[in-house]
């Protein structure tokens, strides 16, 4: 929750326009409160909604700023992943079955590795986009790939659930 609040505050302070600062601060606060309520009431659905709110802050930030590639994207992505993972971890810790000793350390290691991987891949992805010169057909292609990937992921998830 602290991480979510920090991320929200950071995204609010990163904005230049006063209106955006206020809007982002409100969104960050709402996200933190939603996360707190979700964890307290054990409602898992609150987590993705809170993360979406934090993501919206970043979208707003990008919308108000220039067309140049934003190098903070991998950090924001890692922060969002950390908020989500730690949120789910908190929910699991409140379950009836206590995890075996040493599980927390292993999980922390896995989370650290995931965050490092996300940072590295994000940087690589941004570098690739920059190299291909941002805008135009490259972004369209990326978007098309994104849409197809999203549909494929949803189909895969649905297949696994059934």
């Amino acid at each position: 929750m602290l991480l979510a609040a920090s991320a929200g505050a950071w995204l609010a302070l990163a904005a230049d326009a006063e209106l955006l600062v206020r809007a982002n601060a409100a969104a960050g606060l709402t996200a933190a409160l939603l996360l707190a309520a979700g964890l307290a009431l054990r409602v898992a659905l609150a987590l993705p909604i809170a993360v979406t709110l934090l993501g919206t802050e970043y979208v707003a930030l990008l919308g108000f700023e220039g067309e140049a590639l934003d190098a903070r994207a991998p950090v924001v992505a890692a922060a969002l992943l950390a908020v989500t993972e730690l949120g789910y971890w908190s929910l699991e810790l409140r379950g009836p079955v206590a995890a075996e000793a040493g599980t927390s350390l292993r999980r922390l290691g896995l989370l650290a590795a995931l965050l490092c991987g996300v940072l590295a891949l994000g940087v690589v992805l941004l570098a690739l986009v920059g190299a291909v010169s941002a805008g135009g057909p490259a972004v369209d292609l990326l978007g098309a790939v994104a849409a197809v990937s999203a549909v494929a992921l949803l189909a895969l998830a649905a297949h696994r659930t059934s």
Partner: peptide, 8 residues
């Protein structure tokens, strides 16, 4: 049309 969101 912002590739940063794909990074997210």
């Amino acid at each position: 049309r912002r590739p940063e969101l794909a990074v997210l």
